Computed example of a mutant assay.
Amino acid sequence: MQTTALLHLLQLASPSLPIGGFSYSQGLETAIERGEVKDAETARVWISSYLNQVVAYFEAPMLWRLMRAFYEQDSDAVRYWSEVFLASRDTAEFRAETVQMGYSLAKLVAELAIADDEAMASLQQLVDIPLPTAMACAAVALQIPAEAVIHASLFTWVENQVLVCVKSVPLGQVAGQRLLLSMRDDIANASNLAMQLEDDALSNWAPGLSLLSMQHEVQYSRLYRS
């Protein structure tokens, strides 16, 4: 990868990116509250299962398709896959999360003036912009290789889940880093799978996760927004 593209990728994947990713647990907080995640071992099982059964089969393949749509300047494909992703958010919290983060990232892309007029028009045609759409637009505008974006986005997702566990289980900082390090093969395998799936193999079927998200909406005490 060119040095410039690598630096752009590091900026896009950074926890300091002002889109609010740190404020969401994606159902993990409720799993901790219910005792399903209570130590390093159960945390790894949760994160690995979520990554391999949900993210690798839907979120990451959607990002891959949206990047391809922006590379090809296909606004119809951008709209189609954005609408599919929004339709897949089956709880109020999951939908609000992707719309809020997508809006924040799209606004940042506009303020930094990194995308061309056609890419911005593809964003502006959408009533709600999901996070994968805004991320795809930014990555293509910065000329970051699509494969690297998939790897980085999955690492960022895993890192955020680990940080939730560090703060809320709680796990120690060293245990958190050990857990993150142990996920490297899972991330690589999930990334490779996501880039190979055909359209009819995509699936976000995770009813247990959806129920946890709904329970989180009415959870008495919580730190995270999902």
Score class of each variant (00 low, 15 high):
219 Q>D: 00
218 V>H: 08
206 A>P: 07
12 L>M: 15
158 V>D: 05
167 K>C: 00
74 D>A: 03
33 E>F: 15
116 D>W: 04
87 A>N: 13
209 L>Y: 14
105 L>C: 03
5 A>L: 02
196 Q>R: 15
88 S>F: 02
117 D>V: 15
203 S>Y: 07
199 D>K: 14
80 Y>F: 15
181 L>A: 14
35 G>V: 05
149 V>W: 06
15 P>D: 03
170 P>M: 06
81 W>A: 00
219 Q>K: 14
127 V>G: 01
42 T>H: 06
159 E>C: 04
173 Q>W: 13
42 T>R: 11
32 I>M: 07
59 E>Y: 11
17 L>Y: 09
10 L>H: 13
178 R>V: 15
21 G>E: 08
187 I>E: 07
140 V>H: 06
140 V>A: 08
86 L>H: 02
75 S>W: 03
27 G>T: 10
113 A>V: 03
123 L>Y: 10
165 C>T: 03
167 K>F: 09
98 T>E: 09
110 A>N: 07
82 S>E: 02
146 A>C: 10
11 Q>T: 00
128 D>C: 01
19 I>S: 09
3 T>C: 07
89 R>Q: 14
2 Q>A: 12
57 Y>N: 13
41 E>Q: 12
213 S>E: 03
161 Q>R: 15
186 D>V: 09
3 T>Y: 06
35 G>S: 02
46 W>Q: 05
36 E>M: 12
178 R>W: 06
82 S>C: 00
2 Q>K: 15
82 S>F: 13
108 L>A: 04
53 Q>F: 01
5 A>K: 11
113 A>M: 09
80 Y>M: 12
61 P>K: 02
14 S>L: 13
185 D>N: 14
48 S>E: 14
193 L>E: 03
83 E>W: 00
146 A>K: 09
132 P>I: 08
134 A>S: 13
7 L>G: 01
30 T>N: 02
68 R>N: 08
35 G>F: 02
210 S>P: 00
39 D>S: 01
68 R>M: 02
55 V>P: 06
197 L>F: 05
6 L>I: 13
211 L>D: 09
118 E>F: 11
21 G>R: 10
82 S>R: 04
49 S>A: 07
163 L>I: 07
144 I>L: 10
5 A>Y: 01
163 L>K: 14
185 D>T: 07
222 R>E: 02
80 Y>H: 14
29 E>W: 04
133 T>Q: 09
152 A>R: 12
7 L>F: 10
155 F>I: 02
135 M>G: 07
224 Y>D: 04
102 G>Y: 00
139 A>L: 14
31 A>C: 11
72 E>H: 14
40 A>E: 08
99 V>A: 02
17 L>K: 13
95 R>C: 04
8 H>L: 04
105 L>Y: 04
173 Q>F: 12
43 A>W: 05
200 D>V: 00
216 H>I: 03
110 A>H: 08
101 M>K: 10
132 P>F: 06
105 L>W: 04
65 R>A: 08
189 N>T: 12
26 Q>E: 09
219 Q>V: 04
186 D>F: 07
137 C>K: 11
